[in-house]
């Protein structure tokens, strides 16, 4: 799926700004890709091509770096990012059960995004909160001692939030005309 002209413009502008800030040295490749992902949420094909051209690198080299590291995403993420910690302590305290609970509730597998782009589910090596295992990072918040019931609670909170927003929008729409 090729991005629309607007999206292309957005991507070009984002990459341009990052390149201006970080320069075009080879050693800046990883910070550049991080910067692009910070702005766009993922690494679009076009962005990788643009970076390769600016740094005078083979495109496949940039793609190789982008696919080597866990942190880089090649597809847009969901609105809410759920990262289940799979460190030793979390695993032994039931982290795999938590991951399965999310997979079951969201009907996706780890590494995937729900079709409505609301949630993406990832596993993360260790967030360093082993003493509070099992741990889940939801957006930027760390949830400690998560249980399968808490999984339902986390998702329910987002669902309620979304419903409220939708109601709010409808009300506003109703008011306008």
């Amino acid at each position: 799926m090729d991005p629309s002209a607007d999206e292309q413009e957005l991507i070009r502008a984002a990459v341009g700004t990052v390149l201006q800030d970080l320069g075009i040295e080879r050693a800046s490749l990883i910070p550049i890709l991080q910067g692009v992902q910070n702005r766009l949420g993922y690494l679009p094909s076009l962005a990788m091509r643009q970076v390769a051209e600016a740094l005078q690198l083979p495109e496949v080299e940039v793609f190789g770096v982008g696919t080597f590291y866990n942190q880089f995403r090649l597809n847009p993420p969901g609105k809410h990012q759920i990262k289940v910690c799979m460190g030793t302590a979390c695993h032994m305290m039931g982290g795999h059960i938590i991951l399965e609970s999310f997979e079951r509730r969201l009907s996706i597998l780890e590494g995937e995004t729900t079709p409505d782009r609301e949630y993406s589910l990832e596993r993360v090596a260790c967030v360093g909160c082993c003493a509070l295992a099992p741990v889940v990072v939801v957006d930027d918040n760390v949830e400690a001692r998560v249980s399968p019931i808490r999984v339902d609670g986390i998702l329910l909170t987002f669902d309620i939030e979304r419903q409220q927003e939708e109601r709010q929008e409808k009300r506003e729409e109703g008011r306008e005309p």
Partner: peptide
């Protein structure tokens, strides 16, 4: 990359998924 200096192929991904491939495989 070094001999004919084209740069069409490289290593992508990692671990058991590591592969010789072109841009975007």
């Amino acid at each position: 990359q070094e001999q004919v200096k084209v740069g069409a192929i490289g290593f992508i991904r990692r671990g058991i998924g590591r592969k010789v491939a072109t841009f975007e495989d």
